[in-house]
Structure formats: C-alpha cells, structure tokens
C-alpha cells in the first residue's frame, strides 16, 4: 500500500521507468496479463465477457423467429424461381410450334386438304417443318375418350398439323391464317398466342406475389429485431448508462449490441436457408422418382421437376446473408436512435 511513487497519474514517470520498477514485490496481481514470467498460474485480466453479455439477450427466441422468416423467404424465392423457369420452358416450347387444325369437309378429301395446308404453311418464311399427326398418333390421342379399336376413316375426326418454326422466327401468322381459311375449307390456325399471353401474365403475377411475400417477411423480421433490440437494451440499461457516462458514443454502444445480433441473425438465417434448401432437394428427388405417376405428372406440370437451378440455391444463400446483415443493421440502427434519445439534454428528466 505504501507506494513510494508520487502518483500513477504522473505518466511521464511511470512510462519511462523500466517495467516492474518501483512496484510492490509481493503484489499477486503482477504478471497477471499472461505475459512474461508465467511460472505461477496466470490469472487473466479479462473476464472474457463482452461489454454487453450475450446471456442478457433473448437469443434463442430471436434465432427461432429469424430462422422461420429466412425459411419462408427462401421458400418463396424457390417457388417463384421454379414457376418462372417452367413458365419460360412452356413458353419457348409453345412458341416454337403452331398447329393447323383441319375439320373434315365434304368439298375436299382429308388427304388433299392436308397436302394443300402443308404447302401453304411451308411457303412462309421461318417455317422449317410441317408434320401431320399420322393416323396412329391421332388414334392414341383420342383413345382416352373414344376407346381402342378406332377406325379413323369412319369418323369425322379433325386432323392436326404441327408446324415447327425455325428458332426465333416470326412468320406472318395473319397472312398464313387468311390464306389457309380461303384455300383449305375447314382449316384453322392456332398460334397459341392466347396461351403465351396467359402464361406471361401468370409468371409475372407469381413474381409479384413472391416479391410481396418476401417484403412482408422482411418487414416482420425487421419489426421482430427492433423489439428484440429494445428488449436487449432495456435488459442492459445499467450497462448502456455506464457506457454513456464514460463517454461512449452511439456507434460504440451500437457495435456492442450489433456483434450479438449479427451472430443471432446468421444462426437463424443459416438454419432457415439450410432447411429450405434441404426441402427443395428432397422434393426434387421425390418428384423425379414419382415422375411416372399421374400425381407426379400434375405437379411437375406446374413446378417442372422441382430441380431448382443453381441460381435458385445461390439466391437462397443470398437471402441468408441479406437476412443476417439486415438483422445486424436493424439492431444497430435501433440502438443508435435509442442512445440518441438518452444523450439528448432536452429530454433529460
């Protein structure tokens, strides 16, 4: 206790003195920093605790909520991307083909009508192939309705010609339609435009709905994080007050909380994203196995084969990063605005 030195405040003296000079020799605190001369058991100077202890933050609940939110966000993203890619697939399939339907008529024989229609179609630029559905194929097409053992020649069945277009070609469908109608009685051209339009609308609607869901999920996440941060600050009122009195600015105080919230956000988002990725993988395997069944066919008609593209999985990882960064930023922003109130003299009671 009876230190011969004048004062520890005399920094010029204590800093230039050789290390350990003038210190009480029996001071057990000496060398406690884990540095030199570690013969005695070293007692750490530091508690290993952060200024805001992580136990004071209701972390589990927050991780759970963020996990659910990230899961929903990834699910939305995955569904939108699946629907979008199947819609694109249909669209390109459909728009590379148009069909000509010829109803049987009394004026011309069916075979003549088919030849005539093929000639007309091939005369337009951009048409690469015209193929009449042969009798066997037509019979197979009609089988579910009319049963087996069908004789086409006995029935007034319309015939279908598929017209294959060259890639990216845009033939003059209007011209083709009017020539067919005038030259081949009972024929009609279907360029699937109505279908393509409807598909495009649907795909956009899906994207819009997905975006809306995504935004709602993010809004819910932000709100949750704001409340959790306020809760954490209330739980650490003493700490915040002391920091404030020893001269910490909002940035420093916010950083103490942000550390924890970044970790919590990462944990939650990781769990959510991994769960979503796992779900899509399982669905992909399941749907490829049940491809042959009618249910499988129906589902794969809407979602494709559930095989999410790499960009879909990558998008989910982005969602994960986004969710955790947003969690950290939201909490930081919340702390700063709360600290600003604390530091405002006009609000001091």
């Amino acid at each position: 206790m009876n230190d011969p030195r004048n004062s520890p405040l005399d920094r010029t003296q204590s800093n230039t003195a050789p290390a350990g000079a003038g210190k009480p020799t029996a001071d057990p605190g000496k060398g406690a920093d884990g540095g030199a001369g570690a013969k005695a058991p070293v007692r750490p100077l530091k508690s290993g605790m952060s200024i805001v202890p992580s136990e004071t933050i209701a972390g589990t609940a927050l991780v759970f909520v963020i996990g659910i939110m990230a899961f929903l966000a990834c699910l939305t993203l995955g569904a939108v991307s699946l629907i979008n890619s199947s819609a694109n697939q249909w669209q390109s399939d459909i728009s590379r083909e148009v069909t000509i339907q010829i109803r049987p008529s009394d004026e011309v024989g069916m075979e003549d009508a088919i030849k005539q229609a093929s000639r007309i179609a091939l005369s337009f630029a951009g048409v690469s192939r015209v193929e009449a559905l042969d009798d066997d194929a037509t019979v197979r097409l009609l089988e579910p309705w009319l049963g087996t053992g069908l004789q086409l020649s006995e029935l007034p069945v319309p015939r279908i010609l598929t017209v294959t277009l060259a890639a990216d070609a845009k033939p003059d469908f209007e011209g083709m339609r009017s020539r067919l109608e005038s030259d081949v009685p009972g024929s009609s051209l279907d360029d699937h435009r109505a279908w393509v339009d409807r598909l495009t609308t649907m795909a956009w609607t899906m994207v819009a709905i997905g975006t809306a869901i995504f935004l709602l999920v993010m809004a819910a996440t932000v709100t949750t994080v704001i409340f959790a941060t306020r809760g954490a600050m209330a739980g650490n009122k003493d700490v915040v007050e002391v920091l404030h009195f020893v001269g910490a600015d909002g940035r420093f105080i916010a950083a103490q909380f942000q550390k924890h919230f970044l970790v919590l956000g990462l944990k939650g988002a990781l769990c959510g994203a991994v769960a979503a990725i796992f779900l899509f993988l399982v669905l992909g395997v399941w749907s490829s196995q049940s491809l042959a069944t009618p249910e499988g066919d129906q589902i794969s008609a809407l979602f494709g084969t559930f095989s999410l593209s790499w960009s879909g999985y990558f998008g989910m990882l982005l969602v994960m990063v986004f969710v955790s960064v947003m969690t950290a930023m939201t909490s930081s922003w919340t702390v700063r605005s709360q600290v600003n109130l604390l530091q405002d003299y006009r609000r001091a009671s």
């Binding site: 230190d3 520890p8 405040l9 009480p24 001071d27």
Partner: peptide, 12 residues
Amino acid sequence: LLDWVGLGHRMH
C-alpha cells in the same frame, strides 16, 4: 493506477 489505489491484487 490500480496498484496505487491498492487494488493491484484485485484487478482480475
């Protein structure tokens, strides 16, 4: 400073 206020052995 901790030594000087007599807390050298209590700092951890």
